[in-house]
Amino acid sequence: MAKNKPSQGARKTETLTLRLDPKVKAMIEIISRIRRQSITGVVEAAIEEIAFDLDAPYFFDGKTLNSSLGVVFSEIWSSDESERFINLCHHLPSLMTYEEQRIWETIKSSRCFWENEASKILSDWSVEGLGCVDISNLRLWWSDLLDHVEAHKDSRTVVPFEPEF
């Protein structure tokens, strides 16, 4: 997941630095002239086109299906990083990185992130034996959770997160 610089907070756009073959860069520049678009617009349009042509292993209703990434992404996307993460864990679990798997395992082992009588906002899906993720608590402690996972990254076992009140 992309991270903003600490002093900048959430932004409407993200910066991406790429190394391109000079021939490809020149081609993008020509495409942008023909389409009267910015280079960014050309790259965004190309990525969206690829996404709708690419099949993704999408988990839904207890089954793994192949569906267009462009369609699946609408189920995953949220402007809230913690909710987007939970959606990724549920719908595209086979595409998670090791670091994402470690965060997810920490969430699963931490009782504070699961539904209880005080829960306000629950995820739309359930994990057997655990229930639904308490999204309000996940949002509240997201940064602390990430710091906790980073601090325990060398541990051979997952260390449950216990928030400090």
Rank of each mutant, 00 (worst) to 15 (best):
A2W: 11
A2L: 13
N4Y: 09
K5C: 13
S7R: 14
S7D: 15
A10H: 14
R11W: 12
K12R: 14
T13Q: 11
E14D: 15
E14H: 13
T17F: 06
T17Y: 05
L18G: 09
L20I: 02
L20K: 12
A26K: 05
I30R: 07
I30C: 05
I30D: 12
I31M: 01
I31L: 06
I31Y: 04
S32D: 01
I34R: 13
I34H: 12
R36L: 05
I39V: 15
G41D: 02
G41K: 00
V42G: 03
V43E: 11
E44G: 08
A45C: 04
A45I: 08
A46D: 01
I47T: 07
I47E: 10
E48R: 15
F52Q: 02
F52M: 01
L54G: 08
D55P: 01
D55S: 04
A56V: 03
P57W: 05
Y58R: 01
Y58V: 00
F60G: 07
F60Q: 14
D61L: 14
G62V: 07
T64L: 04
L65M: 10
N66P: 13
N66Q: 15
S67F: 02
S68K: 10
S68I: 01
F73K: 06
S74M: 08
I76G: 12
D80E: 15
E83A: 02
I86C: 11
N87W: 09
L88I: 05
C89K: 02
L95Q: 07
T97H: 08
T97E: 12
Q101E: 10
Q101Y: 00
E105L: 03
E105G: 01
T106L: 10
I107G: 07
K108N: 06
K108G: 13
R111I: 11
F113H: 08
W114D: 01
E115S: 04
N116G: 11
E117P: 06
A118V: 11
S119V: 05
S119M: 00
S119P: 09
S119R: 00
K120N: 06
K120Q: 12
I121F: 01
I121P: 04
S123G: 05
S123T: 07
D124K: 15
W125E: 08
W125N: 08
W125L: 06
G129L: 04
L130Q: 00
G131H: 02
V133N: 03
R139D: 00
S143R: 09
S143K: 12
L145S: 02
D147F: 00
H148E: 02
D154T: 14
D154S: 10
S155M: 07
T157H: 08
T157F: 07
V158N: 06
P160A: 13
F161C: 13
P163K: 14
P163T: 15
